[in-house]
């Protein structure tokens, strides 16, 4: 009796999990397939012209702007996030009030919808500081948006470094700073990098926070104070204008390739770092 019952429930559970997995994969394939089918035929050379005009709707300036904005955002957010994490993980004493406050703040920040960051960035960087729609305002806004993510993953990475490394270093007469910079931080790099890659993913996929800060100019920015649009914003513009839907799908194919490349690259880096340590 018992055995029979267990068997039926096992089969049932197996079927449910199989079904869930099949639906998930099926949806993913459907989505990717749909974009490829709609987009690939429209991948014309003119889409890759160096300069944008409303005829060729080239995506190259947007691709370059994406890279520039991602780099500037990371240059602002990664050092800040990592050093804040070092303070939290290595220097703050247990039960410190400031730590509780910082932690609550970052948790709250990471739950805020990106449009709110966009509105804040628009009011503060664009209007109040007078930067105008610009790469700098966009990147500054995004760096605030990804800061909690970077900080959190860096803190986790630092905390997962075994205490025996710290003891070994102190036991040789190394001070706190040297121990943190030479022993703890290098061991935490793979974990920190994992957070950075997630952050890059959010930057590449972001639109709402950029429209009010970096603007939507579709040319290669000549300076950080000029407006620029990332690939995602570019796609949003194309599809909302409704004149270049096909090119929009072709752009989506390129965005997809970019995301896959980022993932492959990060897997590669993680593997190399893993092997080294």
């Amino acid at each position: 009796m018992m055995r029979r019952k267990r068997k039926t429930s096992e089969i049932l559970l197996g079927a449910v999990t199989w079904f869930a997995a099949a639906v998930t994969i099926g949806l993913l394939l459907l989505l990717v397939g749909f974009i490829l089918v709609r987009g690939v035929p429209h991948l014309k050379p003119s889409l890759f012209a160096l300069h944008y005009n409303s005829d060729n709707v080239s995506l190259v300036p947007a691709l370059i702007s994406t890279i520039v904005i991602a780099i500037v955002s990371l240059v602002i957010a990664v050092p800040l996030g990592v050093f804040a994490a070092i303070y939290l993980a290595e220097y703050a004493r247990r039960g410190n009030r400031a730590v509780a406050v910082i932690r609550m703040t970052t948790e709250t920040l990471s739950g805020i919808p990106s449009i709110v960051y966009g509105l804040f960035g628009g009011l503060f960087f664009v209007v109040f500081l007078g930067w105008g729609y610009s790469v700098l305002a966009g990147a500054a806004t995004l760096s605030i948006m990804i800061l909690p993510l970077v900080m959190r993953s860096a803190e986790e990475a630092l905390k997962s470094v075994p205490d025996t490394y710290r003891e070994g270093s102190f036991g040789l007469g190394a001070g706190k700073l040297r121990t943190v910079l030479r022993i703890v931080l290098p061991s935490a790099v793979p974990g920190i990098l994992a957070g950075v890659i997630l952050a890059v993913g959010r930057i590449v996929g972001e639109t709402a926070a950029l429209i009010y800060t970096a603007g939507t100019v579709a040319q290669i920015p000549g300076s950080p104070m000029q407006s620029a649009r990332t690939l995602s914003v570019h796609m949003y513009s194309l599809s909302s204008e409704g004149l270049h839907t096909d090119e929009g799908y072709a752009t989506a194919v390129v965005l997809l390739v970019v995301v896959v490349l980022i993932n492959a690259l990060s897997a590669r880096i993680a593997k190399r770092l893993g092997r080294r340590s």
Partner: peptide, 16 residues
């Protein structure tokens, strides 16, 4: 002091 008084731990803990 820790330079003059070295320490070896229970579990080997070479740095990575």
């Amino acid at each position: 002091l820790r330079r003059r008084v070295g320490m070896v731990f229970q579990k080997p803990n070479p740095f990575p």
